[in-house]
């Protein structure tokens, strides 16, 4: 026990204890609610599932077009999403490019214009991309086509999310 006089008056003691107990009760009440509200922030971003795209043997040097269909989870709402992907082989590497034009989101197509062979062509504003997805200077797109992360399981190509290159 300290010999010093701490000078805590009866009123002050009551203030402290009542504030403490009251704060504890309020926290017990509010904690579940706040925790529920911030759940989306604390819920670690779900690792996107890898979805089957194509057999590895089907791939050649030439980009082929594939539709990727998958179930997207949005809380209590599930929907079917379709993404168009161009995929080809580059040595042992697989290149899977999103067909969404980085200009305004139209769908590009491989050799979509006879004037531009060996290129991805966007019909909306004549955007062009090289084989590896690099945008051609002087056409509307400002960045390369997005590329999918992929993995090979049992001879089949699975893709995840598309990322800017």
């Amino acid at each position: 026990m300290s010999e010093k006089n701490h000078n805590v008056s009866r009123r002050q003691f009551l203030t402290y204890t009542l504030t403490g107990v009251g704060g504890f009760m309020a926290a017990g009440m509010l904690m579940p609610m706040v925790r529920m509200a911030v759940d989306p922030v604390l819920d670690a971003a779900a690792e996107g599932d890898m979805n089957y795209l194509v057999e590895f043997d089907e791939l050649g040097e030439e980009p082929i077009r594939r539709e990727l269909t998958y179930e997207a989870d949005d809380g209590w709402y599930e929907s079917e999403q379709i993404e168009t992907i161009y995929v080809y082989r580059d040595g042992d590497d697989v290149v899977a490019l999103s067909a969404v034009c980085t200009h305004l989101g139209c769908t590009v197509s491989w050799e979509g214009s006879e004037d531009y062979p060996e290129m991805f062509y966007c019909p909306c504003h004549f955007g062009l991309y090289e084989r590896d997805g690099t945008n051609v200077e002087g056409t509307p797109p400002t960045e390369p086509l997005h590329r999918y992360e992929y993995e090979i399981r049992d001879g089949a190509v699975y893709v995840g999310q598309s990322e800017p290159q």
Binding site: P32, M33, R35, M36, D39, L42, G75, W76
Partner: peptide, 20 residues
């Protein structure tokens, strides 16, 4: 369409949703 699903989601998926 979504009322029951959203209640089920908050009850079973959201942290502390069942408590609130």
């Amino acid at each position: 369409i979504n009322a029951y699903e959203s209640v089920y989601y908050l009850q079973s998926e959201v942290a502390f949703g069942a408590i609130v």
